[in-house]
Simulated scan of single mutants.
Amino acid sequence: MASLKFPADLDREVRDQRRARLAPGYAVGVTEEMIHAQVHSFYARVREDAELGAIFNRRIADWDAHLAKLCDFWSSVLLMTGRFHGAPMRAHLQVAEINAPLFERWLGLWADTAQKVCPPEAALLFTARARTIASSLQLGIAASRGEAV
């Protein structure tokens, strides 16, 4: 005998099916565990990096909370979970040291970590989305500083 499903369960099931069709990460096998591995491995490297570590370590007091927020961010980006509630542009605007070479350094470490942590298609997706986000942040930062874009 089939179990009865209540409207809330059906709504959740429909949302989950829609998310699986639309979210880019599902198609290439991205999981919450993979996101966790990527974010934690990457930021372990950032913290040890001479240039990036100096900036991040000065600003991040609670790394556990920061990593949890970043996992929520990437889950929202790649799996469309909607867990992230933050303002990345505002956070990045507060960092005076941010510049194009640092973004490139960040992206290089991110891509290298993704290649080590993720299957190839997932690594490409992580990297492509990071590049898009970095570009958007760089444009917003430049505009806020009155720099040519």
Rank of each mutant, 00 (worst) to 15 (best):
A143N: 14
D9K: 02
L22R: 07
P88E: 08
D62P: 05
A128D: 12
P88V: 12
H92F: 05
P7N: 03
F56K: 01
E48D: 15
R47C: 07
R19F: 02
S136T: 14
E48Y: 10
A130M: 07
H36W: 10
E48V: 06
P119N: 11
E147W: 13
D11Y: 06
E121Y: 05
R19N: 00
L102V: 05
G29L: 07
A123W: 15
G86I: 05
R83M: 01
M89P: 12
G140E: 01
E51M: 03
T132V: 09
A87H: 14
P120T: 08
W106R: 10
R45M: 06
W106Y: 13
R58Q: 09
A61R: 15
I133A: 15
K116M: 14
V95L: 03
P7E: 05
V28T: 11
R21N: 01
A44V: 02
Y26N: 10
F73Y: 14
R21V: 03
V46K: 00
A61I: 12
R45Y: 02
A23N: 03
F6E: 00
D64G: 04
P120A: 08
I98N: 08
I98T: 14
A122K: 06
I55R: 00
F73Q: 04
L22C: 00
F56D: 03
R12I: 02
I98Y: 10
A148T: 15
G53H: 01
V95I: 15
M80G: 05
A96I: 14
V28Q: 11
A128Y: 03
L125M: 12
W106L: 11
G140K: 00
E97I: 03
N57V: 00
P120Q: 11
F6Q: 09
R90G: 10
V30T: 06
E121S: 10
A143P: 00
E104P: 08
A20N: 08
V28M: 02
A20D: 14
V95K: 07
K116Q: 15
S75G: 14
G146F: 12
R19K: 04
A8V: 09
A44M: 02
W74Q: 06
P7L: 01
G53C: 05
E33A: 15
H85C: 02
A65N: 11
D62I: 09
A50E: 14
D16H: 01
D16S: 09
A111I: 06
F56I: 09
M80Y: 08
A20S: 09
T81V: 07
P120W: 09
M34D: 04
R131H: 14
V39T: 13
W63G: 13
A134H: 12
R18E: 03
